[in-house]
């Protein structure tokens, strides 16, 4: 694919849209959660206010260079993921920098943020950060296995390593989606997806009420602001990626919003129903059913 300078502007535009979509999704889901609990709940734009507040805090303290770089790496992971994922199939503007072989790069970006955060949080020196990050890395490693196998399986299925081509292969009706053409890989990936969304039963990393509050314990002010920005971008980017890989991609914004919303609700519903796993339980769980499904997906190809 030829590179044109205007693509940078287009990429920034899609970043802006994805960021706002992520923020609104956060706000609305918390609002829905509150309404289910018979509360009025936060205002749906509360995440924006929190973000402005954190960026306008006046003082910051430092623990060293890696402490600064941790959030930067994390945000790089989120932005990198969105830069190489086509948002709208067939659109020049929202196709982003998708190229042949970007699936491998995307898998790398999904792990990148956690690694950066591990270095940063370790330098923060707080024991809760260290506990949170070790749990996070262990769990990430565990769910990356079935995810990588599932993605390899569909790469074999479509004979390509490009997200755009995978989406293109799924066009022309609902029965062409990977969900129906390769259900085993989809199942493995959607179970791995639960682990990556930081929701119950796999939220032992942040473990609210237990080790408050995991890796970001020492992060504050604008550094926390960067992490919050990423918490909007990264899940939204992952939703778009999963939609592209397994649910036929999107040809319009409406399709994108509806599909990603339902993919997100999958993790929300599971989170509401199941209580939190300990980290050893969650790793064992990932290494059983999702991993077996992942291996099956490869063998069946």
């Amino acid at each position: 694919m030829e590179f044109k300078p205007i693509q940078i502007l287009y990429a920034l535009l899609s970043l802006f849209i994805v960021f706002n979509y992520g923020m609104l999704l956060q706000g609305f889901v918390r609002k829905i959660g509150a309404r289910v609990g018979r509360r009025y709940g936060i205002r749906f734009y509360q995440p924006y206010i929190d973000l402005i507040k954190n960026y306008t805090k006046r003082s910051t303290i430092t623990h060293g260079i890696m402490y600064y770089l941790g959030p930067v790496f994390r945000l790089t992971g989120g932005i990198g993921l969105i830069m190489f994922t086509p948002l709208i199939f067939g659109s020049d503007i929202f196709g982003n920098f998708s190229f042949s072989g970007d699936v491998i790069l995307i898998l790398y970006f999904m792990f990148f943020g956690t690694l950066g955060m591990a270095l940063g949080a370790a330098e923060g020196g707080h024991p809760y950060s260290a506990i949170g990050v070790t749990r996070g890395l262990a769990q990430t490693t565990a769910f990356e296995l079935p995810l990588a196998l599932a993605i390899l399986s569909i790469a074999i299925q479509y004979q390509t390593l490009s997200v755009s081509e995978i989406v293109a292969a799924q066009q022309g009706g609902i029965m062409n989606w990977t969900l129906f053409t390769n259900p085993v890989a989809t199942a493995a990936a959607m179970l791995a997806f639960l682990g990556s969304m930081m929701r119950s039963p796999f939220d032992v990393v942040l473990a609210p009420q237990e080790v408050p509050i995991g890796p970001p314990t020492e992060y504050h002010s604008s550094l926390l602001g960067i992490l919050q920005t990423n918490r909007a971008i990264f899940p939204a980017a992952k939703l778009v990626l999963f939609m592209n890989l397994f649910f036929g991609g999107a040809t319009s914004w409406w399709e994108l919003v509806i599909k990603t919303f339902f993919i997100y609700m999958w993790s929300v519903f599971v989170g509401v129903v199941y209580p939190r796993y300990r980290v050893d339980q969650s790793i064992r769980w990932f290494l059983r059913i999702p991993l077996i499904l992942g291996i099956l997906a490869i063998l069946l190809m």
Binding site: R43, T217, H220, L224
Partner: peptide, 18 residues
């Protein structure tokens, strides 16, 4: 649910840093 301070933008944080 009876008082629900969250609707006023009040939230609880576990760490003094935040």
């Amino acid at each position: 649910p009876k008082f629900d301070a969250y609707r006023y933008g009040i939230q609880w944080r576990a760490t003094p840093r935040q």
